[in-house]
Design a protein around this nucleic acid. Sequence first.
DNA 1: CGTTACGTTGAAAGGGTTCAATCCCTGTGG
DNA 2: CCACAGGGATTGAACCCTTTCAACGTAACG
Lengths: 251, 251
Amino acid sequence: MITPISLFNASCTECGLKKLCFPLGLDKADMLRLDAIVKRKYPLQKGDALFTTGQPFQAVYAVRAGGFKVSTVSASGEDQISGFYLPGDILGTDALATGNHISTAIAIDTTTVCEVPFQDLERLASQLPSLNHQLLSLMSKELADERMHAELLSRKSAEERLTLFVLWLSRRQERRGFSGTEFRLGLLHRDVALYLGLTPETVSRILARLAEEQVFSWRNKQIEIFDLQALIVLAGESQHEKTNSPRAQCG
Amino acid sequence: MITPISLFNASCTECGLKKLCFPLGLDKADMLRLDAIVKRKYPLQKGDALFTTGQPFQAVYAVRAGGFKVSTVSASGEDQISGFYLPGDILGTDALATGNHISTAIAIDTTTVCEVPFQDLERLASQLPSLNHQLLSLMSKELADERMHAELLSRKSAEERLTLFVLWLSRRQERRGFSGTEFRLGLLHRDVALYLGLTPETVSRILARLAEEQVFSWRNKQIEIFDLQALIVLAGESQHEKTNSPRAQCG
DNA sequence: CGTTACGTTGAAAGGGTTCAATCCCTGTGG
DNA sequence: CCACAGGGATTGAACCCTTTCAACGTAACG
C-alpha cells in the first residue's frame, strides 16, 4: 500500500494535507504557531474510540491517515451513523456547544490524528483572524455536509443513495490526490447501510445489481468504479434530470 | 395575539430574547458593543425572502418575531426544507464557508430580524472572546440540530417523525416563554411534509388519526397538545423503549 | 362569488423491510 | 495445514408502510 501524502511526524508546514486541513489560508509564520499547539498522537487501532458520547470536550482532531465513523445512539438503542472522516477532515467540533461530546468516533482502520487542544486553539484563533475564520468556515462546511446527508435521506431511493454516496467518496479521494475510481474503505456494509438509512440486505442487493450492470463494484472493502458517467446519472446528478420531468430540456 | 417578549426596536440589552440569542454569555459592556453593529430591519412580509441561494454572504440574522423556513433546491428541482427558524434563532451561517448562501430563507409570517453584518461581527468577535465562543457554539448547535434531523429521517416511521417534530416545537416554544401545549405556526402541511421527508397526504392522514386519538390537533396553523405523555411515547422518547425489545425492562 | 391553492380521503401499487436460511471470509486452534 | 467457529454478506419470499394517483372538500382572496 502506498501513502503518497504524509510522513508520520511531519509538521503542518510539511504536511501533504495542509491544503485540506486547518492550515488552509494561513501564511507560514501563522502555520508555525499552529504547529506549536498541535500534538501528534500515537496511532489508533481499528475499532478504537477517539472520543465517546458524554466525554468532556478537550480537543478537536485532524485525521492524518485512516479514518473514523461517527455515530450516535438514539433513545431506542439503535445507533445512527452521522458521518465518516477521512484524511484532512477535522472532527470533534460537535461538542463545542455543550462541552461534552454528543457522538462517538471509532477508527475504521489503523489511524493517526493530530490533536489540537481546544483552549489553545481558541486562544490562538483570537490572535490570528485567518485561523479563526478557518475554524468558522470548517464548521460551516460540516453543516453543509450534514444538510446534504439529510437531503439524501429524505427523498432518494435506495439506489440513488448508494450511488450518490460512492460518488461523494470518489470525489473526496480525488481531492486528496488518490485515484477516484479505485480505492479502499474500511467500512462494513452495515455501517454504510446505517449511514444511508437502509438495511444491509438492501445495500447488498443493490451492490450486486450495480456490479452486474458494470457500474462499480465494492467487495472486500475495495471500491472500483467502472462507469463514472452511469454513476453520475444514477445518483441523480446529471445536468438535465430525466426521471420525472418530460419538459426539462434546456432553458 | 400576545407578544410577551419584545418591543420593536429594543436593543440587545432590553431584548427578551437575549438569553437565547447572540448576547448569551456577554456582559453588559460587551452587549452594548454588539448593539452598535446590529441593524434592526423593516419587517418582512409572509413569503418574502431574507436571502436566496447563490446570493453573496453579507450578514447573519437573528429572528425577533415571526419565523423562516430554510430550503435548498436539489439537482432534480424538488426542494428540501432543512429547517425552521423561530424567534431567538440565528440563521445565515451556512454561507460562511463558500461566501455565498447555499439555501433560501422565506418568511412564514410577518417577520422582523436583527441583521448583523458579518465583517463587523467577525471583527468584534476577535476582540471579545466570549462573543467568538458564542458564535462557535451557535454553529455547533446548528450542527447538532441537523444531526437530529438526519436521525429523524433515517429510521423513524411517519408517525414518529410527526410526533417528534411536534415535541421539538413544543419544547422550543416553552424555552421562549410561550405555552408548550398551545401555539401557532405559520407552516403549510406541505412544508412540514418536506421537512420530514413525507408527502402531504401522509401527514394529513396521521394528523387526522392523532387528533382522533386525542393526542394533539393541528388545524389552521394552530397546534394544541392534549396528551403530552402519549406524544412522548409515540415519538419514541420514553425512557424504556417498548416498541421492539421485549426484554427492555430496567437494568 | 368564482378562482385558486391547500387539505382530505380512498384505492391501488410498489419499494424497502423483515425474517430466515445459506454462503463466505477471516482468524483461531488443533 | 486443515477444520471449525463466528461475524458479516447474500439471497429468497412474504409483508407492510408509504407513495401515487385521482377525486372531492374547503379555506382564503380578489
